[in-house]
Write a protein that binds this DNA or RNA. Structure first.
Lengths: 145, 145
DNA sequence: GTTAAAATGGATGTCAACATCCAGTTAGGG
DNA sequence: CCCTAACTGGATGTTGACATCCATTTTAAC
């Protein structure tokens, strides 16, 4: 239901938020997130173009967050990669429906709205601060840096 | 976020529920739902194999619902075509996480659970009984048969 | 300046989703 | 028994998501 690329992007951003405000190379990010390095490179490029990340070339360079983890939501990341795609008007193109969705599409869109809202209300900082014993991206209990 | 095939399947099932318990041909269903007939044929085949529809060949045949609209949920149809795909265990394969998802995946799965629940709680009969002025699949206000 | 680290962008490959077409099979009606 | 309606299954085509590779460009450090 969520694309693989979204999953990859979220892992990368969670990792960078954890390391924030330091920059990390594509190779480091790919290794930490267990994503194919060549593909991660493309995903990170997309996040740069979307203004989520900034990149720095050359020795000591890498990728880093443009905003603070407290100001970056899951929705920001998802929308940068592949927008939720709310149902704005009748998918059948029926003029009589227009913005007033039928019962079927109204319910589908409501479900999408719920997801969008949940994502909008969760910042990266909240994810990292979660008391959950399983730490994101980290195989061992407790945070290792 | 929901695949095109799921959208097509839902349209077909809503149409058949509206016509229930009568059978309709692939051509009739495709026309009413504005889906390419050749592809709708494949979608309907899938719904037959999943036990949502039954098919009858020959003159006077067609597709019809196996269950009553009151007993068929949106989730049944979605799962028949492309299961929601809840996150059961750590996508990174970290053994330390296992069933105990990290904060990131816990939140993603919660969002999926919300959608699954909304779909589980909506029957086709409820969709058809909705007082919404836009009638599913029907271009004009009010139901035309 | 030279060198090495690191991102960039383009070319390419693979596969599943979406879509089309048709020969074959089933079944009702005369 | 034959004809026609209708589904079935297989082959095929198209496109975008996922993925890889590499030549080029930028930049820090020496």
């Amino acid at each position: 239901m969520l694309s693989q690329t979204v999953e990859y992007a979220l892992r990368a951003v969670v990792y960078l938020a954890d390391q924030s405000p330091a920059a990390r190379t594509t190779g480091q990010i790919a290794a930490a997130t267990k994503v194919p390095p060549a593909y991660m490179s493309k995903v990170l490029q997309g996040l740069c173009h979307a203004g989520i990340l900034r990149s720095q070339r050359g020795i000591g360079g890498g990728m880093s967050l443009v905003h603070l983890p407290e100001e970056l939501t899951i929705l920001d990341v998802v929308n940068a990669v592949e927008p939720i795609g709310r149902i704005e008007s009748c998918p059948l193109g029926l003029k009589a429906h227009g913005v007033q969705l039928c019962a079927l599409h109204r319910r589908l869109d409501n479900a999408l709205a719920t997801v969008e809202e949940a994502f909008r209300n969760t910042t990266l900082a909240e994810v990292l601060a979660d008391p959950n014993p399983s730490v994101p991206l980290c195989d061992l209990p407790g945070r290792a840096k």
